[in-house]
Every structure is written in structure tokens, then in C-alpha cells.
Design a protein around this nucleic acid. Structure first.
Lengths: 155, 155
DNA sequence: GGTATAGGTTTGATTTCCCAACCCACACCT
DNA sequence: AGGTGTGGGTTGGGAAATCAAACCTATACC
């Protein structure tokens, strides 16, 4: 047996969208870029890799193919509701890069409906308080996996 | 010339933490697992890959090596402030996986200070309103790059 | 007919990833 | 003193993913 890793939704999500370019494809789609050629150029993904990513994301229900031409048959890629729910991941990644990598000039600035440039904050849906390190405690539900690792591991 | 991809903080951030296992390493550190062997087991990362990731994350200022023993010299890895600021990325990834991949039983449940199990929501720091697709508009600051691509396009 | 566009597929070279084995310095036990 | 265990890696070679460029199919445009 092969010493399985910790069961975790982060790992499961990354197994789907953690491959190279997958999240950049989602970025483009969510910016309104829906067609193969343009996604390829905007992300820099090789075309064969892009084909693989698109198929996988469609299969996973994150994107869907929508016909925009009958003759010749042509499709574009749009985010499903599940795909749109990945937007928070993109927002938090962007916020971190804006702060730590591109502090002096941000390549893209999102404007919120309220009129301000968006700085995204993660809060608790229940109380509205910020969800940072200090305000959270983990409840690990898999027997043998604590925050400090599996106790006396079976070798 | 080589048809550069869109300038973007998401891409820049992923160039750092988008390689395989990088975010899982961060997950472990943020769960209180700081040592090489245990991080290796809990993430499933091969040891050489883990060595490469840890060095890269230290070099990038996301993790730091802290000595916990002089003789023999031994180090553990801890998140810097910059590393702690990646927590929102982990939270949003986990939330998506909890909802779409592990809806029936979540492997880890985080409890917020308020007592409720955390469901993280991304809001605008300025007005506190939720930041979803409909409430955002993009301002692309790099000449030639719009939301529809570098040259002409119809949405 | 010739050219352009859109969305791929194929080919072959280059990078990563993976995994088992090995190494080193020390602690602990006998 | 010798043997065993632990922590934190490094090394080597094979498997898999990525890359760039060329190629293919179908249709529209001139």
C-alpha cells in the first residue's frame, strides 16, 4: 500500500484545476474570452495542452461547449455555475499577486459595483467577520489525521 | 517574437505556487505541520520534489526556515506574513471542493471564531458587498489587452 | 483557384515528475 | 564499541507531461 496523502478538498480541487493553464483558461473565460484560438494566445498555452485542459474542464462540469456556428460547426467555451463559483479562487490569487508581486502597477484592476477598486476579503458567511489564521480552528474528520499528522503511522 | 501571454497577477502568482504540491505544502504548514518528513507524507509529494518546492517557497519569501535544533542542525518551515496571506486562496479552493466534490462529507471543517463552521465568502473590502461575477467589471491596464483579446473581436 | 479563419491533431524534443535507494550526522540502547 | 532509528535530505534512471512547429479539415471570402 502506498501511504495515501491527507484527504482534503484543497487537494481534490487542485487535482481538477491545478494543472498548468487550467486556472488561466478560467480567467479568460470569465473575462469574456470564449474561443480556442484566443484563449490559446492569451494564456500562452500550447494548443495540444489547451485541448486537453478544455476537455477535462468540460468533462468536470466547470465549462460547457456552446455552438456558435452550424456550418462549419464551431463551439465556444463558457463557465457553468460550478465554473463561476471558482471566481473566488481567481480573485484571491489575483489579490495576492497584486500585493506581493505587482504592487507598483497592477495589470488588471477590478471595479466593484460600489465604485471602489476591489480588494477582496474572505469573510465568514455566518457572522461576516474576516476569516484569517487567528480566527479559525480545524476539525479534521478523518480518523488518524490530525493537524500534526497521522499518529503512529502503519509503516 | 514569441506572443507573450496576458500580463496578470493570477498568472504571476501561479508561477510561484501553481506547481504541483506547492499549495498543499502551504496547507500543511498552515495546519501546523512544519517538518520535512511529515509534510512529505501528508502531501504525498516525492522527497526531491518537496525539496525543490520548499526551497522555492523560501526563496520567494512565502516560507522561512527556522532552526529547532543545533546539534544536529535541523530546520522547520513556517509561513511568513506573505505566506499567511495565501490562506484566502486555500480557503476558496477548499470551499469549492467541499461544495462540488465532497458535498456529502467534508474531510476537514474549519470553525470560525463566531462558532459556526466556516463558509468563506469573498467580499469587497470597501463596501462589504459580495464580489461575484455580476458585481465586477475589469479594467485592463496593459495597452492592447482588453477583455476580448489583443485585437478586434466580437464578444 | 488561392488565401484566410477556426479548431484542432501529430510529431519529436525537452522538462518535470516519480520513486526507490543511498548518504550523513547524530541520539539512543546494549 | 556496535547496532538501530530518526531527520533531512541527494542521486539515478524511467515514466509522464509540456513544448513548438507543422499539418489537417471544413468553410468563407476574393
Amino acid at each position: 500500500m502506498k501511504a495515501a496523502a491527507r484527504p482534503c478538498s484543497i487537494a481534490d480541487t487542485l487535482a481538477l484545476v491545478g494543472e498548468k493553464y487550467a486556472l488561466l483558461v478560467l480567467r479568460e473565460v470569465s473575462l469574456g474570452v470564449h474561443r480556442f484560438d484566443r484563449i490559446a494566445r492569451n494564456t500562452g498555452a500550447p494548443r495540444d495542452v489547451l485541448t486537453a485542459r478544455l476537455n477535462r474542464l468540460v468533462e468536470a462540469g466547470v465549462l460547457e461547449k456552446v455552438a456558435y456556428s452550424e456550418r462549419p460547426p464551431r463551439y465556444e467555451y463558457r463557465a457553468t455555475p460550478a465554473g463561476q463559483e471558482l471566481q473566488p479562487v481567481l480573485l484571491t490569487l489575483m489579490a495576492w499577486g497584486d500585493r506581493h508581486l505587482n504592487a507598483d502597477d497592477r495589470p488588471v484592476v477590478l471595479e466593484h459595483r460600489c465604485g471602489a477598486p476591489l480588494s477582496p476579503v474572505v469573510v465568514c458567511a455566518h457572522c461576516g467577520g474576516e476569516a484569517d489564521r487567528a480566527s479559525l480552528s480545524a476539525d479534521v474528520r478523518t480518523p488518524g489525521w490530525t493537524t500534526t499528522g497521522p499518529d503512529t503511522d502503519t509503516a
